[in-house]
Nucleic acid binder design. Structure first.
Lengths: 192, 192
DNA sequence: GTTCCACCATACGCATGAGTATGTAAGCCC
DNA sequence: GGGCTTACATACTCATGCGTATGGTGGAAC
């Protein structure tokens, strides 16, 4: 009946808790990840949780590592096969714009950078992504120094875009305006 | 003796509390703004606070409105007198880069956009700033639609820059590299 | 020099959320 | 079909942080 209350009345595994945690984080941020609240969502009580995990932080760590290895790694993997670097960059921009919901977790983590578990993870992820962008610009025959700068700029624009778009409902653009905006970003940040 | 414990043993005003609140927010974020913690910083107890303010939210609101009217308004006011729009844009980018600490509060508020008091304020501020940028691009004889897009892009880059630079210690650039980066941003985002 | 009140201290109540202690029911296992 | 393990419930303790109730004090006013 209700898909969220009792999706299978089987018993839970640690993975179920991790996936539930990621859902919660995506919806309401890292702070909203509370043990009892998540237990209610999963249709059980705290007693279950403390069997699977040592404490709240252990769950957070496990959930974020799962996210880093699965979701996060996928993004780059799907774009990597594109040969032409300019085309690859265009694809990145368009994906970022189109698949905004899938970046919900990343946006939530951006707001929790002061958390000791989140910070090292985000440092890794961000460095990796900037590195990826830098190489794309290099392959588009941009001088090394300029490529590094442009990658930083593009990534900063991505991060800011997420903030303004998800948290703030900022732009409030129509479909056409939005496409035009993304096109403008590509025109501005991708060398000709 | 200790400038933080007893800066003047006079009694406090609502303004003192608001300024203290802004300091705390800049240092540790909106969540760190706790009544008793702030009272300790000011060398008094809660009893004082609840004489000046109805509750915690009232303080937050007052502090943020003070910030919006003073600090925030100053930024635009100082740049507005510059005649040449291209020069004005360059000055904006350089100020943002140089005066990073003064944007600490803005960065902290970005991480608290889910808070009902913060959201409307940040919506106002962001819209105002994007508007300001848009007009600068228009005066630099950029077509209206393109100007709006470029303003959004520049502002997103600013927001992302703050996140990556303050929270994450991201770039970790030397002085020279940093200047070169800012120069690259100006070259890329300001029309010739 | 007493009065008054703005400002503050002290001591509560109360809700929330983490973590613990302990009991219990439903499989396998042979 | 007793026994062990896995998974969960129940019922607490404890810390934190907001808000309240009430009493105290120093300095301006007269």
């Amino acid at each position: 009946m209700n898909a969220r209350q009792k999706t299978e009345r089987t018993r839970l595994s640690a993975e179920d808790w991790e996936l539930g945690a990621l859902e919660l984080i995506a919806e309401s941020g890292v702070n909203a990840l509370a043990v009892e609240a998540l237990a209610r969502r999963l249709g059980v009580t705290k007693g279950s949780f403390y069997w699977h995990f040592r404490n709240r932080e252990a769950l957070l760590l496990a959930a974020l590592e799962r996210w880093e290895q699965h979701d996060e790694a996928d993004v780059l993997a799907q774009i990597e096969p594109i040969d032409d670097p300019r085309e690859r960059l265009r694809e990145i921009f368009h994906r970022v714009a189109r698949e905004v919901p899938s970046h919900r977790i990343y946006a939530a983590l951006l707001k929790a950078l002061d958390h000791p578990v989140v910070l090292p993870l985000m440092t890794r992820v961000s460095q990796r992504r900037i590195q990826f962008l830098t190489e794309a610009y290099l392959q588009a025959s941009m001088p090394p120094e300029e490529a590094a700068h442009r990658a930083r700029l593009a990534y900063a624009a991505f991060v800011g875009f997420l903030q303004l778009n998800l948290a703030l409902g900022m732009p409030r653009l129509s479909h056409e305006e939005f496409d035009a905006y993304v096109e403008h970003v590509a025109e501005t940040l991708i060398p000709h």
